[in-house]
Design a protein around this nucleic acid. Sequence first.
DNA 1: GTTAGCACTTAAGTATTGTGAGTGCTAAAA
DNA 2: TTTTAGCACTCACAATACTTAAGTGCTAAC
Lengths: 356, 356
Amino acid sequence: MVIVMNLDERKKKILSSVVEDYIESAEPVGSKTLVEKYHLDYSSATIRNEMKLLEEAGYLEQPHVSAGRIPSTKGYRYYVDNLMKERKLSMVDINYIDNTINGFGDTDAIFEQIADVVSKILSTPTVITKNNTDTIENIKVVKISDNLLLIVLMSKNGAVKDCIAKLTDTVEDKVIEQMTNILNRDLAGTPIKELHLALNNVIMKDLQAFSNIMDDVVNSIKYEMSKDMKKLNSGMEKILEKPEFSDIDKVKNFINMISTKEVIDSALQKSKDNKLSIVIGSENKEILLNDYTIISLDIEKDNKYLGKLSVIGPKRMNYAKTISTLKYINDKFKNTLTSNKSRNSVKGDNSEKGRR
Amino acid sequence: MVIVMNLDERKKKILSSVVEDYIESAEPVGSKTLVEKYHLDYSSATIRNEMKLLEEAGYLEQPHVSAGRIPSTKGYRYYVDNLMKERKLSMVDINYIDNTINGFGDTDAIFEQIADVVSKILSTPTVITKNNTDTIENIKVVKISDNLLLIVLMSKNGAVKDCIAKLTDTVEDKVIEQMTNILNRDLAGTPIKELHLALNNVIMKDLQAFSNIMDDVVNSIKYEMSKDMKKLNSGMEKILEKPEFSDIDKVKNFINMISTKEVIDSALQKSKDNKLSIVIGSENKEILLNDYTIISLDIEKDNKYLGKLSVIGPKRMNYAKTISTLKYINDKFKNTLTSNKSRNSVKGDNSEKGRR
DNA sequence: GTTAGCACTTAAGTATTGTGAGTGCTAAAA
DNA sequence: TTTTAGCACTCACAATACTTAAGTGCTAAC
């Protein structure tokens, strides 16, 4: 796919050292540092010559003439595709993930858990985008008390969402049954993204029949569905720690940018085929994102697409750790949605599908 | 209660002008500014003499000798108690509140809505603390599908909380009924803060009877209840706009501080009698909070205490607007929890209790 | 009691200089 | 041909001195 440039071993070693040192230190890397810290058996002058060549070939760049080198977008890309070694997660992180993601709550709640965990481990903001081509499959309405109804929506792909409706009028069981039938008749098969419209139609058609009650129910569903994409700001505090954001204006710009739905949407549209997609710096079509990297993972359950989990941060991000964390979470997630038993003493494992 | 110092009218006018100008501009206020902007019919020299006296009496302070004056804690306190004029909310804010707080979802969701709205309007972080002396009154368990249960907890004070439990085993209706009975028998009357312990006891006693199912249910409840106090970080981005937080270290300190549960707890313990409490700067016993003001409001429904809504920010906060916003929300909230009809065209108002 | 006038203080902004990290190039060594 | 020592050069950053403007407190006159 990618045209592999003819970099000799020494250049590869230098490039990967520059990338890794810069990821760690956030400071431009100089020839002397490379020789000393990475045991390159050449003098600094030789390394300087090589770095010059790497710069001319577009893999490195120089903030100013008397500074060391930092990786360019092309450099990061080469590193990710050819040089990076996949890394095992630390036991600390594995334990943290295992103890925190427990599968309680509806699908949104689980997404939220995942976003929080990823943010904590990677110190990056995390975005969850739900699959809104998913369709409604089934709706249940349960009477909790005289003026409280509980509505549960289940999607074709297995997502579950519930909400509570407070009624102004009391309601009889018979009415609930009728209403449930109407909702299922009108909404089953509706794509999530068209749900709002469909709900309006339900009201138009059937409001008369059930007066306020249907209205209460529909509004509750509408509100619950409008909470989409909310998890955007998870882990925002963490970026304050990164030297890239030492200036308050940069923080503000970044927050504004990722709060702009269009920017994120544009970034997440591409590369639908890959389960794991990495878009580095200027590879982003959106100019505002040219200094940032977005790594996203498709979240699936039983081979059905539920949504996308994306990590967004400066180009200087820990690619190896990010990728292994996302992959681990993905595996974990598949199990979690099926069963929440994993953290307790697993007694009878025979109920599992056995694909591992 | 408060000993009112003998400030003459001119001093009052000067003090209130300094407070209001400083709240708006965040810059120390000088004598010339006061004369010109607030039409005090004296020369700047006279005002200077007065300001000197106000400083000696402890109402004002001077960051350095060639700067204007800023209010001290005592100055803010005098302003809030004696000089501040209560202010009507703007129509924009009223509309925003009315259109956003709609009463959908369980009690926690509503609290969250309120915290978000307050944060947006006041550009301040907002903390919600739930009343954990409230007790469980009733528990309902509803079967959604073969391996999904929905659990609804209702408290004595009217709070509602629901969660979904995913089961490893399938479950029969009869079992659910038995289990519901056990849960109600063992948990009814339990204070929310002791729920975790009580749930452990339930498992100890009855795990054998229902094996994994009860386990799944109990763990779901536990997880749902553990989300307490989560709304702490709402509105955190907003503080970046305030000049007090122009330095990234100050932001970090502030975030660390308010993320420390103990600090917030200590601040929120005092003044239980008042529905609205204002603790300014050094009035806070906790030293870390000495540069900040906390304004909290007890949230009630039908005269039952549900929790506390607190706004935390620099001493230089817009006291008048904060207080009127909280009061408006409080009124709104009472209605909202009872009925979510307010934003639709209200047709038959006869169902309302009529207390306004 | 009030105010004009003035000397004084100080934060903050601007200009100046010094320092150190790191480079590119040249010429010699391997 | 490749590598390296040596050196002049560049430039960000830190430290320092200089300037400016805001605002005060005090005194003496109104």
